[in-house]
Design a protein around this nucleic acid. Structure first.
Length: 760
DNA sequence: GGATCTCATGTTTTT
DNA sequence: CATGAGATCC
């Protein structure tokens, strides 16, 4: 079988280039994952490289998993020994294996997430007698994290001004606390690996020999520490294959440094550079729009994206009165799309900030369209999940003070802050950990202690529990059983039930606990493993595909995804570009890339919208359409006097929306390059797209007279029987207001709600 | 020691 | 507006 089968020329060149440094600059939708997976297959099959010698790094677990699956298909089985994972997971693995060679850590070190980190910063501020009002913890943490991303130690941290001097001290103390806790934060995983390699050339050499071929996904998003790591690992064999797109770099604010692409070229002047410019995702029209936007960025490596999907539906642009109407317009448009045979899962709505999802959610809820929200409150950030994890972490690592503080009195068990302080002080005097002190109180009846009767009882009881868990852990009880024991002894369920405002909240939270338990029993063999997974896994990793719902997500979360239909809302100055990015050209460029990423997610259709007024933090203000909109040529847009609309900012003419007929049409009807949608893809059984360009023609199925009159009795699948209050025709649908007993008045779309008339 | 209230705060968030 | 952390009150 030909390993290169099905690839275009540029892809073939990339995949079959002889080992050595390779830089692949891959435009959106140009098949970069394909190139990476084929390259790995090529190394194994064609060049007889042992999978054992290959390391592939990604930024998300999802990307790693997808690549793994595809390689498995290509190779017809799991390649044994291939290392595929995120930067952080890979580093954690190396550090765990090399823990004997680490100065400050033992093998069972834990990973602190952002919440934990904040707690540590607060502790550090307290230890240094610094006011956390003057020095906001999250700002301190930013400084520390930035330093670590640049591989700067506390000692090296330049105290160039007062704030920096304070940050330096906090950083130093912060690091000490982490050592005491036997904990690393995310940044440490990278930095400590680099430092280990620098201190121990023998260790580095071992890994250089092991991983002779290194492949990197999303290279434009690497930070200095990640780049340093790659450079060291590849220093011996120079077999480093990186894939990236500087136009999709949207994480500068997290330390990602696009300049790494240039550094790479300088470090390896002999590197093969390959451009992937053919796009397999979008219509030419959508690509044209994307290109005309990104063109305005400075200092870019020019790419000339093209596709075989000539033409395409024009981009729909609309102005709404406010975010509520904007949501309504989106909902209407989606209902129209459903009639044309699109499935809900084909659609996605993207926005700049999470707060914008609210209006959209309400809009979807109003008509009962299911949606899924990506990444809002992440599972592992939920209070109840963090509580249980803290218990498990403390059993695993008795030195974990953050977890200790979290659960010592959760559920409340009479160990208040005074008692806690006393306990910590008492433990410290005796050179114990607070957890040691607890166990002493529980087991040693003769121990001298400073606690009053009531406090002693509370501590004694908790110490007993904790001791039991530790014993069970030593006896290698399963994670699930330990989990259950903790739940049962702490009566955590009762605590949730009591604390919840309503039964919904309770069942939600308890459901999360049970979900966590499932993960614990299903995926993890050891507690160490389970805790590591929990720390390094993110919400978007489990984005299920094909569920019948619209996807709501931020533009950041959209990277790497694609949808037949994409809506980008809130295209206003101050939102996109975000108000905090208006000052510098650099920031503005990054906002533009974000817009570019959004546009290029769309396969067939793109809808853009902005609102005339928007409520931000409870304040409704007039807004100006995004400056980026002006960068899209008018002939790519559909909509009545689009140009005027985009300039006429604060004087709003009449209300209109996407589904209304349009005056400006594409000159030639765009031939549709996509084959008709396979029936299996649509949940409406064999519905195919009616016309190539639905903006040109009125919808054939469009109702001309309302089917419902006020007073009509109707039945709805979910709400039961009700009475029509009024009904009016909207774009290509009918909007029916129905009063349901016990449910109130609902606004329903006739095409979607499947209302049944009741005659009597 | 624990619950309640007030006040400040507020992008994006792969790990 | 909505959330969370700290102060204040019981």
């Amino acid at each position: 079988m030909d390993i290169l089968h099905g690839l275009n020329d540029a892809q073939k060149t990339a995949v079959s280039t002889p080992p050595g440094p390779v830089l692949v600059l891959a435009g959106p939708g140009s098949g970069k994952t394909r190139v990476l997976t084929f390259r790995i297959t090529y190394l194994i099959r064609q060049l007889n490289v042992s999978p054992w010698h290959i390391m592939a790094v990604t930024f998300t677990n999802k990307a790693a998993r997808e690549m793994n699956e595809r390689i498995e298909q290509l190779l017809d089985g799991q390649p044994r020994g291939l290392l595929m994972g995120t930067f952080h997971a890979t580093c954690a693995r190396i550090l765990r294996r090399e823990s004997d060679n680490l100065t400050h850590y033992q093998r069972d070190f834990v990973i602190f997430d952002t919440d934990d980190q904040l707690q540590v910063v607060k502790q550090a501020l307290k230890d240094l007698n610094l006011d956390d009002k003057k020095f906001p913890p999250y700002k301190m943490l930013n400084g520390i994290s930035n330093a670590k991303n640049e591989l700067i130690t506390p000692q090296e941290y330049a105290a160039s001004n007062y704030i920096a001097a304070v940050t330096q001290r906090v950083y130093e103390r912060y690091q000490e606390i982490l050592y005491h806790n036997n904990a690393m934060d995310f940044d440490d995983l990278l930095m400590n690996t680099v430092m280990l390699f620098d201190e121990r050339p023998d260790v580095l050499q071992k890994y250089q020999e092991r991983y002779q071929h290194i492949l990197v996904d999303e290279f434009q998003d690497t930070n200095t520490a990640q780049y340093a790591l790659l450079k060291r690992l590849a220093a011996r064999h120079h077999n480093i294959f990186v894939v990236g797109d500087s136009d999709q770099s949207i994480y500068k604010w997290r330390g990602a440094d696009v300049r790494n692409i240039n550094r790479f070229r300088e470090a390896y002047p002999e590197a093969e550079v390959i451009l992937l410019e053919q796009n397999y995702r979008s219509t030419q029209l959508i690509l044209d729009a994307a290109k005309s936007v990104i063109r305005n960025n400075s200092n870019r490596i020019h790419k000339d994206l093209f596709t075989e999907r000539q033409g395409g539906d024009p981009i729909a642009l609309s102005e709404a009165y406010d975010e509520r109407e904007e949501a309504e317009t989106v909902v209407n448009a989606i209902q129209g799309l459903l009639l044309q045979g699109y499935a809900l899962s084909d659609t996605a709505v993207m926005y700049r900030t999470n707060a914008q999802s609210r209006a959209l959610e309400e809009g979807f809820m109003r008509v009962g369209i299911p949606y899924r929200l990506v990444g809002a409150t992440q599972f592992y950030k939920r209070r109840e999940v963090k509580d249980i994890l803290a218990y498990l972490r403390l059993v695993h690592n008795p030195a974990d003070s953050v977890s200790f503080n979290r659960i010592i009195n959760t559920p409340t068990r009479g160990i208040g802050s005074k008692t806690q302080q006393m306990l910590v002080a008492w433990a410290q005097q005796n050179g114990w950990l607070p957890t040691d002190a607890l166990v002493k109180l529980a087991l040693d009846p003769d121990v001298q202690h400073p606690f009053s009767g009531r406090a002693f009882n509370a501590l004694h009881n908790f110490g007993e529990m904790y001791h039991v868990w530790q014993r069970l852990y030593e006896q290698e009880i399963s994670v699930g059983d330990l989990f259950d024991t903790i739940l049962q002894q702490t009566q955590y369920r009762d605590y949730l039930e009591k604390g919840a405002k309503d039964s919904d909240e309770y069942s939600d939270r308890w459901g999360n606990v049970m979900e966590l338990r499932n993960t614990a029993t299903e995926t993890a063999v050891t507690l160490t493993e389970f805790l590591e997974n929990a720390a390094l896994v993110s919400e978007t990793d489990n984005l299920e595909e094909g569920i019948p719902a619209t996807t709501l997500l931020t533009l950041h979360a959209a990277k790497g995804l694609e949808f037949p239909v994409v809506f980008i809302v809130g295209l206003e100055d101050g939102i996109l570009p975000h108000s905090r990015s208006l000052d510098t050209r650099e920031d503005l460029d990054e906002e533009r890339r974000l817009f570019y990423v959004g546009i290029t997610r769309a396969k067939d259709r793109l809808y853009l919208s902005h609102a005339f007024r928007r409520t931000v933090w409870g304040q409704s203000d007039a807004s100006t359409p995004s400056r980026f909109l002006r960068e899209i040529p008018d002939d790519l847009l559909a909509g009545a006097n689009t140009k005027a609309r985009r300039q006429q900012t604060k004087t709003r003419a009449s209300s209109w929306n996407w589904s209304a007929n349009t005056t400006s049409q594409r000159t030639a009807p765009a031939p549709r390059a996509t084959p008709p949608r396979p029936a299996a893809h649509s949940n409406r059984g064999g519905y195919s797209l009616p016309t190539p360009n639905t903006y040109d023609d009125p919808e054939p199925s469009r109702p001309t007279t309302p089917q419902f009159r006020s007073g009509q009795r109707v039945r709805h699948a979910k709400f039961g029987e009700g009475t029509v209050i009024q009904s009016k025709l909207t774009g290509n649908d009918e909007e029916v207001h129905v009063a349901f007993a016990g449910e109130g008045v609902k606004r329903l779309a006739a095409s979607f709600a499947k209302l049944e008339k009741i005659d009597d």
